[in-house]
Amino acid sequence: MTTMTVPERYGESVLSPNWHAELERLIAMAEVADRTTTRTLHELGLRPDWQCLEVGAGAGTVATWLAGQVPDGSVLATDIDTRWLEPAAAPNLRVSKHDIVLDPLPVSTFDLIHARFVLEHLPERDTVIAKLCRSLRPGGLLVIESIASFPIASCATPAFRDAMHAIESTLAATIGTDAAWPRAFPAPLQQHGLAQVSASVHIPATGGRNASARCWSHTLTQLRPRIAEHTPQALPAVDEALRLLDLPDFFDLAFATAICWGRNIKTQ
């Protein structure tokens, strides 16, 4: 079991919904990631009668899309802060304020559980995976997407590389993020008894003022004061990276999105 003590949790002040541009950051993130998410779920056999759980639903783009894909089923969208989920309107979409670490989940309920950019930020991720697995119906599918830092070492631009490493180290120090954890995918699902497991990786180009560039620019801007606390020597690289991300001709590779999935083959 993963255990560690960290000063705070995601959303309290680090990557907080109270930051003035957090919604814009989440929308840019969704623009980068949603196409990969929806393609993955389609390829895994999403069915119109499935009961779905979207964990850490954020701005609600995946939950809203899922609701349209399961007209004979339902979607429960949860987050610790639901301010951007409440306007989501669909007869089969329900929103609930829920802490995936502390709050219970119903057992043997969902055909699909999807969590994107959630578990890598939770020191209790092993316990959470066990909880999610128990909440799957027989035959149910768990899909996890996480940021993964392994491409950063080969960044072509030293300042951009150092700024991305500053994000990684600051998130680790403040909220316990482990961006190296996804490099083991799909082993975490195998370890929790799921079958038919596999994994894939998506590495979008960051630059040209595209959505990925906007996302990382927002992230660096929000985290800059915390980077100053934990790795002040990285501030020149952070400022240079912010300059580069605003240029139309800058491109590099940042964090990857690592995806893993598996099925509950246990019977009732």
Score class of each variant (00 low, 15 high):
Pro188Lys: 09
Pro151Thr: 08
Phe110His: 13
Ala88Cys: 10
Asp162Tyr: 06
Asp246Arg: 10
Trp65Arg: 06
Leu245Ile: 05
Ala77Leu: 04
Glu43Asp: 12
Ala33Trp: 14
Pro7Asp: 06
Ala57Trp: 12
Asp72Ala: 11
Glu22Ser: 10
Arg243Val: 06
Leu189Asp: 01
Ala173Gly: 13
Leu41Phe: 02
Arg263Gln: 14
Ala115Phe: 07
His202Ile: 05
Ala258Met: 12
Thr177Val: 02
Arg9Ser: 09
Val62Glu: 10
Arg94Asp: 08
Ala59Arg: 10
Leu132Ala: 10
Pro186Leu: 05
Pro71Met: 03
His218Thr: 04
Gly193Tyr: 12
Ala67Pro: 06
Gly262Leu: 09
Pro236Met: 12
Ala90Gly: 08
Ala59Tyr: 08
Val118Thr: 04
His98Trp: 04
Arg183Ile: 14
Leu112Gly: 09
Lys97Leu: 03
Gln233Phe: 03
Thr36Ala: 11
Gly139Asp: 11
Asp246Lys: 03
Ser108Val: 14
Ala57Tyr: 11
Val118Gly: 01
Arg161Glu: 10
Cys215Lys: 01
Gln191Trp: 14
Ile144Glu: 11
Phe150Arg: 01
Arg125Gly: 07
Thr2Met: 06
Ala159Val: 04
Arg25Leu: 02
Gly208Phe: 02
Trp50Ile: 04
Leu93Phe: 14
Thr267Gly: 03
Arg137Trp: 05
Ala184Cys: 03
Gly140Val: 02
Val62Ser: 10
Arg47Ala: 15
Trp84Tyr: 15
Ile113His: 13
Arg214Trp: 07
Gly11Asn: 00
Ala172Lys: 13
Pro17Asp: 06
Asp126Leu: 02
Arg183Gly: 05
Thr3Asn: 05
Val95Cys: 05
Trp261Val: 11
Val32Pro: 05
Gly140Met: 03
Thr109Ile: 04
Phe160Arg: 03
Ile80Val: 15
Pro7Tyr: 14
Thr40His: 08
Pro138Val: 13
Met29Pro: 01
Ala166Tyr: 01
Ile167Leu: 11
Thr219Ser: 07
Ile27Val: 15
Gln69Glu: 13
Ala184Phe: 10
Arg9Lys: 13
Gln69Thr: 02
Leu141Val: 08
Ser212Pro: 00
Leu223Cys: 02
Ala234Glu: 07
Gln51Ala: 07
Ala179Phe: 15
Thr36Trp: 12
Val6Ser: 00
Asn18Gln: 11
Phe150Lys: 00
Leu194Tyr: 11
Ala153Gly: 13
Ala90Leu: 06
Leu119Ile: 14
Cys133Glu: 14
Leu102Ala: 15
Leu171His: 09
Arg183Glu: 15
Gln222Ser: 10
Leu189Phe: 02
Asp81Pro: 03
Ser74Lys: 13
Leu253Trp: 01
Ala159Gly: 04
Trp19Cys: 01
Trp84His: 15
Lys266Arg: 13
Pro104Val: 02
Ala179Gln: 05
Gln51Ile: 12
Glu8Ile: 12
Ala166Pro: 00
Thr174Leu: 09
Ala156Lys: 12
Tyr10Ile: 07
Glu145Ser: 10
Ser135His: 12
Thr206Met: 08
Ala148Thr: 15
Leu15Glu: 02
Ile129Asp: 09
Arg35Asp: 12
Val62Tyr: 07
Thr38Phe: 14
Gly207Tyr: 14
Arg209Leu: 10
Pro151Asp: 07
His20Gln: 09
Pro151Tyr: 07
Glu31Ser: 12
Ala89Val: 03
Arg161Ser: 06
Thr78Gly: 00
Thr64Cys: 03
Arg214Glu: 11
Thr177Pro: 00
His218Trp: 15
Ser146Leu: 06
Leu235Trp: 14
